[in-house]
């Protein structure tokens, strides 16, 4: 699967389904600070992802 962060892309070989929460945890990202899309659609962090999913992690705070 492909994980897209603001300025970088990480490819993860992951056969078994894994929750977005655990991916965020591994990347030390607080789920409160981001929204996450799977294949372009917004999903909750407890969603399971696997295979060819493309995950985009979008930071939400940028100052007015």
């Amino acid at each position: 699967m492909k994980i897209i962060l603001s300025y970088s892309t990480i490819n993860i070989m992951q056969e078994d389904p894994v929750s977005i929460t655990s991916i965020l945890d591994k990347l030390t990202i607080n789920p409160s600070d981001v929204i996450v899309s799977r294949n372009g659609k917004l999903v909750p962090e407890d969603t399971l992802i696997s295979g060819d999913d493309e995950i985009r992690i979008i930071r939400i705070a940028h100052g007015g």
């Binding site: 389904p17 929750s19 929460t21 929204i35 659609k41 917004l42 999903v43 909750p44 962090e45 407890d46 969603t47 399971l48």
Partner: peptide
């Protein structure tokens, strides 16, 4: 079983946020 949700708490549509 997986900690997630397949549908919105209020309807049958897929959820976008918890």
């Amino acid at each position: 079983a997986n900690g997630g949700a397949e549908r919105c708490t209020l309807c049958a549509e897929p959820p976008v946020i918890r």
